[in-house]
Design a protein around this nucleic acid. Structure first.
Lengths: 333, 333
DNA sequence: ATGAAAGCGCTAACAG
DNA sequence: CTGTTAGCGCTTTCAT
């Protein structure tokens, strides 16, 4: 069965059919104010009738603007990023931009490659949880507008969560329940946000006179929860704060497996409020970030940056919110 | 603080620096066989030194190929699509293609718009769970290569799951536990896969001499589970098969809220094996689809289709697998 | 094997 | 307000 493909309608086809010059058609689309309203209406009608769609590649070639922004992140399937992606996608769509997503597989080399190859094809980058050294990020920003999420680098735009306040909320919560200390189940050592979380927890614990011990690093996955739970249990801790919800849910699973009551014997706190943390067993107490907003704001900041070039870098810090669910309670007597 | 941007290196820069013509540089990249090996090596070295990256837009303009494929789906944040996205992304990357994702917000008009505007910018489409009528899909395929996921239309490439076998597995499982019938909690009436699922369940039930009743339609979300659970409970059913896991998990939540033991009083089965279905309470028995493979195969089928144009449409049917977890058991005595 | 030249579809001066 | 004229960076004949 033959599937033929029609040649796509170009601006010239529309111009001929409408009896005007190609540039008038172009202006009718991109610069409506500089064309007679009646002419424009006619052109648009003809374009519509012919099924004309501007060719993005051609437009990009001339104007240099691709109307495409790239969202680069370590792993699309990590539920932490879902909201981020959606937020970025919405913001991009609202601004008439196409969003391409680059998955770096948690790999710095792949990340560098993605940024390099996508460079000429996009107007700018939103890079999340980058694994690249500061210098590389600064260098990349030389070529293309750039906004970081979950990372701050001097001179670059960024959107991060307020871990200082957030970790204090967690520690206050545990303290108010009567816990004397907690174990932090650490994630990857290179994780920028992991470091911030731990630092915040330490500071808040110190201020409260609580003990804070770090275990790990563990894989920030469900599977990582097994070792993390066992280690924490052996330490006799009454409260566990996990690097993220994925790990926390894994910990919960392991504890159930070992018949350890939560929160009767240990309380568990996570970070992120990912999909699933409300219906795992027991529902997880966690520090929610405004990930969706972060994604949206990052794109907006990027677009803004493209408008007025030389300005102060925008550093956004988003508030966090502690969701107290069923995985935390008083320590055992 | 001024952030300057360097002009990007072009093919001409490389040509000048290497002392050859631009066309030779071009050939060195895209047609290695038609250039002297030594020249090519030299050109490549110079390109590397200058940090040259081909401009995709310019390349697309001339060649017509954009090396970009679009993945169009109703909702990026729906966990059902995570694996699909990842699979598609991997397959695209492996083939040197960029993947852009179009979110249609479950909206046929938005879907049509996405397909139309993305058309000239991509080499082809993978459209998942399309809400568009067959005719529109066929029309779209006139312009661009197209592969459908979760949908079959005569003459078009498609990748779907084997619901016939899958639903039989579900029904056999329930029968083997001693259930005499079940209630199907339906999703959106327009859902192609929902219709297939129900049809398969009915057929399998008939073959087994079981009763199958459809309730709904319900929103295929966690929230939809409230009404679905209440309605099913009122009917006195001993087993519920939900339109998808999202709904099933919502049902589980509602049942717990009402103090109904699962599977003691009712068994619950879902579809999809989404993230979370293994750690909800109780872990969900569900029919797993090979979503990741589906995404990958769809992209591959698309790429294949772009090579040899007029051929038989490829219709792929992927096997499913019943994951028996803790939400199903014998009916109450 | 390589170079010169002609566009791809569109936008952006520059005239008129 | 609109048409003409150059290209954007690259690929692709067509010569050499």
């Amino acid at each position: 069965m033959a599937r033929e493909r029609r040649r796509r309608t170009t601006i010239v086809d529309v111009a001929d059919e409408a009896g005007v010059a190609a540039s008038t058609v172009s202006r009718s689309f991109t610069n409506p104010s500089r064309v007679n309203a009646a002419t424009r209406e006619h052109v648009l009608a003809v374009a519509e009738r012919l099924g004309y769609t501007p060719n993005a590649a051609a437009r990009a070639l001339e104007s240099g603007r691709t109307n495409t922004v790239a969202l680069v992140l370590p792993d699309i399937t990590n539920p932490y990023f879902f909201g981020l992606i959606k937020g970025a996608e919405r913001a991009a769509a609202a601004a008439g931009q196409t969003l391409v997503i680059g998955d770096t597989e948690e790999n710095p080399a792949a990340e560098a490659r993605v940024v390099r190859t996508l460079g000429p094809a996009v107007d700018g980058f939103v890079i999340c949880s980058s694994r690249l050294p500061d210098a590389d990020l600064v260098a990349a920003a030389q070529h293309d507008p750039l906004t970081l999420v979950n990372r701050q680098v001097t001179g670059l735009d960024s959107v991060v969560s307020d871990y200082q306040a957030g970790t204090r909320q967690i520690v206050d919560h545990l303290a108010s329940l009567g816990h004397q200390g907690f174990v932090f189940l650490g994630g990857p050592p290179e994780s920028w946000s992991g470091a911030r979380r731990w630092r915040g927890l330490q500071a808040a614990a110190r201020a409260r006179g609580m003990t804070a011990t770090r275990h790990g690093p563990y894989q920030p996955t469900l599977g990582g929860g097994v070792a993390a739970a066992d280690s924490a249990l052996a330490s006799g801790a009454t409260a566990l704060v996990a690097h993220n919800d994925l790990l926390a849910i894994g910990v919960l699973g392991r504890l159930r497996e070992r018949g350890v009551p939560v929160p009767g014997r240990v309380s568990v706190v996570g970070f992120d409020d990912i999909f699933g943390s409300e219906f795992c067993a027991p529902p997880l107490t966690t520090l929610a970030e405004r990930v969706r907003e972060a994604g949206g704001r990052a794109v907006e900041s990027l677009l803004m940056q493209m408008q007025r070039r030389d300005s102060q870098p925008a550093r956004l810090v988003l508030p966090t919110q502690l969701l107290v669910r069923a995985s935390t309670g008083p320590p055992p007597p």
